[in-house]
């Protein structure tokens, strides 16, 4: 076991840089996450939150820096669910297990268990188009956890949802965090989501980390960036538009 694994780390990001054309999105971001820890990445729109997730999932290449993942079992819950429309709920989950080479019986048992966890046992044979937005989101959760990931990312999991559904989704994140003991990143700008689901917060602005700390501290800090963001104030160093 190396030194890093002794520290129970699951993910390390060192001096991560990314630009799109002349626009520098990330100017050297560094952070790490331990197993069982849920980190919230918050910040105004366009600050690079989703770009970090895409980099961590190898969907885009970084311009510089290093990403060290201590597990290959990684899942991402997409903002828009991203379910395959031509497949049923059950088939969508089965696809995530494709590389596990399980027997049909084992696969069916795992899928049934995960669908039960998100309350969708009766919708196994439904197509995404036949589900409501909330059910699609829950299916997306089930697909993400079907491999029992060691690292899980949530991209704006409650954006655009009504308050009740947001609470249900937040409860899932908390439940999954307890059950899976996975390292998790929740990218969000919903106050209730980051206060309820995260252990630690990172505030991004203009491609840099402006503040880090616990969610409780975020509401009381004198840091002008975090204070403006937490109070949803127009006055402060974060200029929008």
């Amino acid at each position: 076991m190396n030194e890093v694994n002794k520290n129970n780390l699951m993910l390390e990001v060192k001096n991560l840089k990314k630009s799109f054309g002349n626009r520098e999105i990330l100017k050297g971001i560094s952070f790490s996450i331990k197993a069982g820890e849920t980190v919230g990445i918050i910040g105004p729109s366009g600050c690079g939150k989703s770009t970090i997730l895409k980099l961590l999932c190898n969907l885009i290449e970084p311009d510089g820096g290093e990403i060290i993942k201590y597990s290959n079992d990684i899942s991402l819950v997409f903002q828009g669910s991203a379910l395959l429309n031509s497949l049923t709920v059950k088939e969508n989950l089965s696809l995530a297990l494709r590389n596990k080479h399980l027997s049909k019986r084992e696969e069916a048992e795992i899928i049934a268990e995960k669908l039960k966890l998100v309350g969708l046992s009766n919708f196994a044979n439904s197509y995404p188009a036949q589900l409501s937005g909330g059910q699609q989101k829950r299916t997306s959760f089930a697909r993400a956890i079907v491999i029992d990931p060691k690292i899980i990312f949530y991209d704006e999991p409650t954006t655009g949802l009504d308050p009740i559904l947001s609470t249900i989704i937040e409860d899932y994140i908390i439940t999954l965090s307890d059950q899976l003991r996975a390292a998790a990143i929740v990218v969000t700008h919903q106050l209730s989501t980051w206060t309820r689901t995260t252990d630690r917060l990172i505030l991004l602005h203009a491609g840099e980390i402006k503040w880090q700390g616990k969610p409780q501290e975020a509401l009381e800090t004198a840091d002008p960036y975090m204070r403006q963001f937490a109070l949803s104030s127009r006055d402060g160093p974060i200029l929008v538009g």
Binding site: C57, L76, Q79, L83, N99
Partner: peptide
């Protein structure tokens, strides 16, 4: 449509 709705990205994340 699959590209725009991130279904292709979902496949890549699932290592497909």
């Amino acid at each position: 449509t699959m590209m725009i709705t991130e279904q292709i990205d979902a496949l890549k994340v699932m290592k497909i």
